[in-house]
Design a protein around this nucleic acid. Structure first.
Lengths: 310, 310
DNA sequence: TTGTAGGCGTTATCAC
DNA sequence: GTGATAACGCCTACAA
């Protein structure tokens, strides 16, 4: 492996000059800078992370902690991980994956955490290194999608498509994202002066299917589901009852990508812009690492039109 | 952060002695060894990976390269990644995730690769650092499940449950794992002296559903599918045609975990023992790193009984 | 603008 | 069995 010294020798300058060309190019005269750059390219020099880490009192390693239940996470997490590593790699950082509440700070510069629950608040507040979470928790730097706008968009779509009654299928958990998704529906309905109908269920396709069959849905119903799983159950309930989707019933889910490939029809759904989320998470974390004060970021999700709405 | 020197000072020994206690304990007298151990625990000392890397000419970083199409990978990959990181962490290694054919060896000690195609052979042969793949490619160190035994088990299960005709739903790709899955079915059928029926399709639930509807399945049919997606399509074809599963038709998939939660009924499937796979991959790679000669490992998969067989 | 010296945390090597 | 020394690759601080 070619090192700083190799480049220095080959370019007839000191190691420091090479180091400056890389980290503070403005401090080096144009002439020498271009010369050194050429040698770097020619020799294919790449910084050694260990040396850099040692000198900078950094580790150049970020831990991603997945607190969600691994058996239940949506497959799009693979995309999130890949986007995170891509962004981090561009800054010379490595991504280490953890599960379980392992907040050990050894050999790690910061944490990116997903699936944080309110009960984790204290543990996260007392960490000695920066944290950025994917989700929302007041007092902790976060990147999240704007859940309220998400279901608002979903509800407005169904309103526009003239479904008569529109109901919300929520999750039976006491977490902020759930409340926000509910509120988005609520606000859109209030603006449209339509009656509100909210049901809360376990986040399970079979549960929502059974529940909706029990409800005996009428034609011209719209369903805003808090998750793709709930939406999938709704779709199956309609198929079971002989209701045509999207003609008789319109359904919008929330989250997904993967479910598309497995559902009978592709779902219309509120999609998480994972690349943007990953970029924001990394930038916030690196900003915190360089001592900047940062604020949580909320990203507006997009509506992905599938076959369960007109 | 507490360093070797801190421990050394506190234990009234030299840094080297502390280092030996950690890396070559047998070279240190019992007395001093236990003393130093106590101080280590007391101070909560953990090795600094960068320092260690620099001194050992290692990076303590392994790249996992995901060559499968990220949009199509099964969600169990998250499990594989987590198991890999767990095992690596136990050895002080970090796991870096890549996608695309990025075989850059900078700051990396070895590669773990999934989704390797035959066309990657040359690129992999010429790497300067060890590689272990998940899959099979003659001439490259690999960990794989024994695909042949997998479908053999699946076929034997259906035979035992007295389905009259048993057909194989394969994938339309020219890769070793596909041929092996086909062969497992073939062997089991030949042993049972039953007629062989093989169909090859794109790995897509909708495709297999349409195809099987076109076939007009008869009751008492067993279906061995090369993937869970194909199995899922088969299940839907049965539902569509009013055939009861598992009474009229028995179905066995291959791969899965996640699909269970989304399917109408949980699939009987050949399950990949991901933890064992991850352990083997890491051990083979670390063995290669320490100069040992290693051989590919094939792991026997398990049959996970669901609701699509009796 | 450029170079020199020293140190980050660890380990191999060679003394004692 | 234990310790001193030098080295890994890089960067900060200071000197020229």
């Amino acid at each position: 492996m070619v090192s700083l010294s190799d480049v220095a020798r080959s370019a007839h300058v000191s190691k420091m000059t090479v180091s400056r060309v890389i980290n503070h190019p403005e401090q080096v005269s144009l002439e020498i800078r271009t010369e050194v750059q050429q040698v770097i390219n020619q020799l294919g020099y790449v910084q050694n992370r260990a040396g850099r880490a040692l000198a900078n009192h950094r580790h150049y390693n970020i831990a991603f902690i997945l607190l969600d239940n691994v058996d239940e996470i949506e497959p799009y997490y693979a995309h999130l991980l890949i986007h995170l590593t891509d962004v981090l790699q561009a800054y010379g950082y490595t991504l280490e994956i953890r599960h379980e509440h392992n907040f050990d700070v050894t050999n790690v510069d910061g944490f990116l955490i997903s699936g944080v629950r309110h009960s984790d608040y204290n543990a996260l507040r007392n960490l000695s290194i920066p944290v950025v979470i994917y989700g929302s928790e007041p007092g902790i730097t976060a990147v999240d999608i704007d859940n309220t706008i998400g279901t608002q968009l979903a509800t407005e779509l169904l309103l526009k498509q003239s479904y008569q009654q529109i109901l919300f299928l929520g999750m039976d958990v006491d977490e902020a994202f759930e409340k926000n998704r509910e509120n988005g529906y609520r606000q859109a309905m209030q603006t449209a002066k339509k009656p509100i109908q909210i049901y809360k269920l376990a986040n399970d396709g079979h549960v929502s299917r059974e529940f909706l069959i029990g409800l005996s849905l009428m034609p011209k119903t719209g369903i805003v589901a808090a998750t793709d799983r709930l939406a999938l159950g709704a779709l199956r309930a309609c198929i079971y009852q002989g209701l045509s989707v999207p003609h008789d019933v319109g359904i919008v889910g929330f989250d997904g990508i993967y479910v598309h490939q497995l559902a009978e029809q592709s779902l219309t759904t509120v999609k998480q812009p994972l690349k943007a989320i990953a970029q924001q998470m990394v930038h916030l974390l690196l900003d915190e690492l360089s001592g900047k004060t940062v604020q949580s970021v909320y990203i507006v999700p997009e509506l992905l039109i599938g076959e369960t709405t007109k």
